[in-house]
Structure formats: structure tokens, C-alpha cells
Computed example of a mutant assay.
Amino acid sequence: MIHPAWPDQEEPAPLALDSAPVPQYGRGSLADLLPTLAAGQGVTGMTAAIAELTPADRNCVFLIDGLGWEQLAAHPDEAPFLTSLMGSSRGGTGLPITAGFPATTATSLASVGTGLPPAKHGLPGYTARNPETGELMNQLRWKPWTSPRVWQPYPTVFQLADEAGVHTAQVSSPAFEETPLTKIALSGGTFHGRLSAEDRMDLAAEQLAAGDRSLVYTYYSELDGKGHRFGVDSDAWRGQLMYVDRLVQRLVEQLPPRTALYVTADHGMIDIPFDEQSRIDFDEDWELRAGVALLGGEGRARHVYAVPGAESDVLTVWREVLGEQFWVASRDEAIEAGWFGRPDELDERVYGRIGDVVAAAHDDVVITASVNEPNESAMAGMHGSMTPAEQLVPLLEVRS
């Protein structure tokens, strides 16, 4: 096949790494949300990094998986209540913040719960190499098994708030209660499992009222699933957005006094056409495979682990082949550019989990792996990179 990265010119111009819109760690990212709220509740060691937020005695974070700022803004008819919050018409704050890199669920939920960037919490993608074993680890499904507390040793903001006397709770699906990701990112206080999303809204309101100072987290996943399967402009996705809009309104109507509710998300999403120009199949591309031992990450945010000694050659080839459509960086370049957090925040244990080469999509294109990742390769909607459609998530505030 002819590679879509090669236009009709002699020398393709690769994207400059300094053109990548790096997440706003330390002032406007998901990792800054809970520390800002907990600081306002008097939890020691927390920093109020998001200047637009003012303290509240009771705080609730409702995270809607896959609800990007741009997707919400494009669908006002399906989400009139949420759209009204974007304009701060209810006296709160409506602004976009950045998810973090990569913009994917495991990384983002770890950033939310720990209040740390990926460089420190150490979940740098959908899949990442375990330097101790040399295997790819799926950090969402936690396969193959590794000790959760070894993989992510830092306490969560929920744990620190609970120790400080804040009534702390998570309200989510019962299926998530015992998962390793919940244990290392979203634990602290009490977990309350409810199958019905309406029941979760009701119980979240009850948990908020249970303390003079409360920190409550609740979560909804189905919007993301519809986006992956059918795309973010499909009837199925729009129907889910309408439902989510009603859920938020249901929760708002039950907020106890002195509460701030924050509606946010873990990432946005874009639809990728099903054609060879938009979907580059790593498993069928000899150039991209040359010198590669493992392919990690996901279609729009790839960690590439080279055969020892081939790191420089792999970087050169990936830049030559993909450099007009992807930001392609070496591990050290990505770290120094702040893709995963401030360079001085990088934990030593995290360094080898990051690819020798890191490729983040700029255009509407993905690197699939049809043989090794058949399910992921078949998705209509995808995410992971630093484009606004993936990176910007809402931070919508309602106060009672």
C-alpha cells in the first residue's frame, strides 16, 4: 500500500514537537481537580491549582467517560442542561481543562484519583511495557497481573481526605469495586455499588449530605462505549448524551446545601474513517514493524518499544513515515516536552514504561494492529492524543 504520510514532494516536513499542545499540568488538568477541592476543605498537603474554583464544604465529582468539551459543544439540542452549564448561567464555572497524555481512561482515572500526572503515578497509557517482565500490561484490565501497590504506590486524594476527617465516598457500578484500577486510583472512604445510574445519582446526593465536609465521586461509562462502537455523531451516542443530561439534572436537583458539583470527563473522542489512508495497520506494515519488539498504547497514542540497539533507527523510520500526521518523539524528548508531566516529576520506576518512541496523532488517523488488537482496531471512535477533540474535557460547576 502507499503510505498516507508520503505526499507528492521530495522531503516530507515532520511536525515540530514544540507544536504539540501539551496538557496543562499544574494549573488546569484532571490531575489538579481533586487537590484543588481537597485544599479548599482543609486537607493538608493539597494545592489549589485551578484558580477559577472556590472552596466548598461539600464537593461532588461526576465523571462521564468519553464526554469531551468539543463533543458536548457540538450537541446542544441533546444536552440542553449541560450546555447551559458551559455558559455558567447557573452561577457556577464552565470551562475546559486538559485530560493529560495520553487522553485515555486508565491514565486519566489515575490522574483524577491520585492528583498526580502520569509521570508520577505511572500509568502512561492503555498498554505499557512492564520493565520488570518485558511484557505489555493492559492498565485498564490489569493483565497480566502485577501488584497494584507496586505499580502505583502513592495514596489517593480520597484516602488523604478521609484521614483528614472529610466524609469520602465513591458511588459507581458494583463491577468496579474490587478492580485494581479502583484500588490504586479511586479508593478511600467507602465504596457504594449501584447498577442503576439513577440510583447512583440519588446515593451520591445522600453521601454528600452525610458529612459537614464531604468529597464524593460518581461515574458513568456507557457514553464512551457507544462512541467507540458507533462513533460520536451516531444516534446511539446522541441517545446516551440525552440520558446523561437527565442524570446530571437529577443530581443537581438533590444537592444538599453548601455543595459544589463538578461534571467532567476522562477524555474526548473523534471518529476515524474506515479506509487505508486513515487506518495504518502496523501488523501489515513492514517499515513500521522493523526493529520493533512491542507496540503499546493505542491507535492515537502509541508507545513503541524497540529491539535493543534499534531505538535510533525506529525513531528515524517512524518520523519519516508518520511525521506529517503524528508528533513522533523519543522517550527523552517526550519527557522533556512535558507530555507526561513536568520532567522533574518523573518517577524512576516510570521511565521504562514509556516507549522508546512515542507517537501522538495530529491528523484524523490511527495506527491499528489488526492481528494483535482486533477489537480495538475495529472501533469507530477513538482517543488518546493531544488534539483539542481528545484533550479538552468539561469542568462544569453547579453550587447549592
Rank of each mutant, 00 (worst) to 15 (best):
L392G: 00
P12S: 03
R141A: 11
K183V: 15
M269N: 01
Q240L: 10
R129C: 14
D313V: 14
D363T: 10
A16P: 12
Y220W: 14
L396T: 07
T127P: 08
D57R: 12
G323M: 01
T316N: 14
G87H: 08
D233S: 10
C60H: 08
Q24V: 15
G94L: 00
F340G: 09
I280A: 02
R399D: 05
S377V: 10
I272T: 06
K226W: 06
L294T: 11
H167K: 11
G113H: 07
M379P: 06
V252L: 01
R149N: 11
G94R: 10
L82W: 05
D313H: 10
Q277P: 06
L82C: 05
T190L: 08
V307N: 08
T316F: 14
G134S: 07
S88T: 07
P4K: 01
V263T: 01
D245C: 03
T44S: 14
G268L: 01
Q277L: 11
L247N: 00
V112G: 01
D245T: 07
V263Y: 00
T114P: 00
A310P: 02
G68D: 06
P155R: 07
A265V: 10
W145F: 13
T316A: 14
F158E: 00
A205L: 07
H228R: 09
R300N: 01
D347H: 11
G309C: 03
T54P: 11
L82H: 05
A236Y: 05
S400C: 08
R141L: 13
S370G: 07
K143Y: 13
L288K: 07
G291W: 00
T156A: 02
W69R: 09
G231A: 04
L34H: 08
L85T: 13
Q391M: 13
I184S: 04
G297F: 01
L295E: 04
E376M: 12
G66E: 03
G100V: 09
T105G: 05
A389V: 12
S196C: 06
E163A: 13
V317N: 06
D212L: 13
L255C: 02
T107V: 05
I280V: 12
Y154C: 12
P117M: 04
L346T: 12
A301I: 10
G381M: 09
Y220G: 11
N375H: 14
F326Y: 08
S147Q: 15
H362K: 10
E10M: 15
G122N: 03
D202C: 04
Q9K: 14
D65C: 03
V171N: 03
S173V: 13
D332A: 07
L395F: 00
P7L: 04
